[in-house]
């Protein structure tokens, strides 16, 4: 295997949300790249060269660089997080690419994820979906003993399968409808599976789905490209469960009467 490779690199540059943006050819800065470097380290190298050439470096989001924080995310040749399965951009290594290969590097594309700059997008819509109901209300200090409610191993494992979502947004980026169904389903599924999550189950499901709608994500039309792009391999089975939970909740949920409490 060649130790270094040259790439034909095209990167999406966009000054801000209202700038139309365009691809720039950075092939001259993408030569002699070590195959052992990660994709983000490759961009680091390109950026250092750009800075030394008095050009603005490419802005991309990243943090932990070990595949868990979910901050990184770049579309490489049409694929969110690039060609390797179950791998975030930061864990993708340059040995995946051939010498001379052409790379088109773009940000996540979704109306609900406006571009902040270059490859960095605003994913705060995800946070608002969580704020709408992605929690179990439990004040510190009020919790019963951790073993008070046994949870069958199967359930705990299932909940963990969903909870492993890193909230990177690759599902939205991959979806032709820019739907956040997989993200939302994983978050709802995690909490709705656990006994602790039952009290707020219906309210949570209805509220999170409503927020998803308000953020302007599309609906799921069963293409399942999200599952293929997900670096944590979260299954679309969770979307089916969410659909079931929502339909059930919509038919049975009664909002709690709003009463002023406790001051009397």
């Amino acid at each position: 295997m060649a130790e270094t490779i040259d790439l034909k690199l095209h990167v999406w540059r966009q000054k801000g949300p209202s700038d139309p943006g365009k691809f720039e050819d950075y092939s001259q800065y993408a030569k002699g790249i070590s195959t052992h470097a990660s994709f983000l380290e490759f961009l680091d190298v390109v950026n250092e060269r750009l800075v030394l050439a008095n050009q603005e470096p490419i802005v991309f989001d990243h943090d932990c660089r070990e595949g868990i924080c979910g901050m990184c995310g770049i579309v490489i040749n049409g694929e969110p997080h690039g060609p390797q399965k179950a791998t975030t951009t930061c864990q993708l290594h340059m040995r995946t690419f051939r010498n001379g290969e052409e790379l088109w590097v773009e940000p996540w594309r979704a109306a609900a994820f406006p571009v902040i700059r270059d490859l960095s997008v605003d994913r705060s819509a995800f946070d608002r979906i969580i704020q709408a109901g992605g929690y179990i209300t439990a004040r510190a200090g009020a919790a019963p003993d951790a073993n008070a409610i046994p949870i069958p191993k199967r359930l705990a494992d299932e909940a963990m399968d969903a909870a492993t979502c890193i909230g990177c947004g690759a599902c939205v980026a991959a979806c032709p409808n820019a739907s956040a169904s997989l993200f939302m389903a994983a978050k709802i599924g995690h909490l709705n599976t656990l006994p602790q999550g039952q009290a707020e189950r219906d309210k949570r499901t209805l509220a999170m789905v409503a927020q998803h709608e308000r953020e302007g994500f599309g609906a799921c039309s069963n293409h399942y490209l999200c599952e293929a792009a997900c670096p944590k391999e979260i299954s679309v089975q969770w979307i089916a469960r969410m659909n079931r939970d929502l339909l059930k909740a919509a038919m049975t949920y009664k909002p709690e009467p709003q009463r002023a409490g406790g001051d009397g």
Binding site: D145, A146, I151, A156, D157, Q196
Partner: peptide, 13 residues
């Protein structure tokens, strides 16, 4: 641990 279980942390069982 009590608090985290109440918040829905799926610890190994």
């Amino acid at each position: 641990i009590d608090q985290c279980v109440a918040l829905g942390v799926p610890f190994a069982r």
